[in-house]
Simulated assay, not measured.
Amino acid sequence: MSNEPDLYRPVVGGVRHRTEGQGRPAAGSTVELLCGARYQVSSRTYTTHVYHDCPACDEINQERGDQRA
């Protein structure tokens, strides 16, 4: 779980990613994930099972020295 509830971490196909953004972006907007993928924010909010965190996002996050969950 995130230590910062306003940190936006979308789940795509069971993989939780990291973004640079804080808070949920507006529905329909596209955000870039740290791993370089793009994600279009849905207008629906729903619970998605998380199988694991994106290793590429985590690696980039660690390189930047950002230890947010």
Rank of each mutant, 00 (worst) to 15 (best):
M1Y: 01
M1H: 04
N3V: 14
N3E: 13
N3I: 10
N3Q: 09
E4N: 06
P5G: 11
P5C: 09
D6C: 10
L7Y: 14
L7I: 09
L7N: 02
Y8F: 15
R9W: 05
P10Q: 00
P10I: 00
V11S: 01
G13P: 04
V15Q: 03
V15H: 02
R16A: 05
R18Y: 06
T19M: 03
T19D: 07
E20Q: 12
G21N: 02
G23C: 05
G23F: 07
R24D: 09
A27L: 06
A27R: 10
A27H: 06
T30D: 10
T30E: 15
V31E: 07
L33R: 08
L34Y: 02
L34H: 10
C35Y: 01
R38V: 05
Y39N: 08
Y39S: 04
Q40E: 15
Q40G: 08
Q40V: 13
S42C: 04
R44G: 11
R44K: 15
Y46A: 12
T47S: 00
H49R: 10
H49T: 06
V50K: 12
Y51M: 06
Y51L: 11
H52R: 13
D53V: 05
C54G: 08
D58T: 01
D58H: 03
D58Y: 03
E59G: 10
E59V: 08
I60F: 02
Q62V: 13
Q62R: 15
Q62H: 14
E63C: 07
R64K: 13
R64P: 08
R64N: 13
G65W: 11
D66F: 10
D66Q: 12
R68D: 13
A69F: 07
